[in-house]
Design a protein around this nucleic acid. Sequence first.
DNA 1: GAGATGACGGGCT
DNA 2: AAGCCCGCCATCT
Length: 113
Amino acid sequence: MPQNPTGQRIQTFYDRVYEFVRGVPAGRVVTYGQVALELGSPAAARAVGYALSYLPNESAVPWWRVINAGGEISYRNRGISADMQLRLLIEEGVAFGANGKTDLRTYRWWPEG
DNA sequence: GAGATGACGGGCT
DNA sequence: AAGCCCGCCATCT
């Protein structure tokens, strides 16, 4: 983990991504761009996805509740992980249509609200 | 410091 | 509607 000269732990952008995502309740979702926005870097959606790519599937951080702006599962069909994400969300009550999309107006979560 | 990397996003064809 | 293209960002070499 990165540290400053005095040995104190530096909170990187990635750390802040994990912190924010941990606050997303079951049955709700957020988008990559939204997380970036909430963290103060509106255009860092890509970096958000990159940060989540380092998490193991069994992470305490609910990475599966983060989807793209189109209401779809991303992950580029990389192995079984995309299927796992879809399954986990459905188990939590997030409905997906035959087009593979969910309704963000219904399931999107915003902090403090 | 320049170049590469990506689970993105929006605009244009 | 489905791609393609390009800008953006944090990190790592």
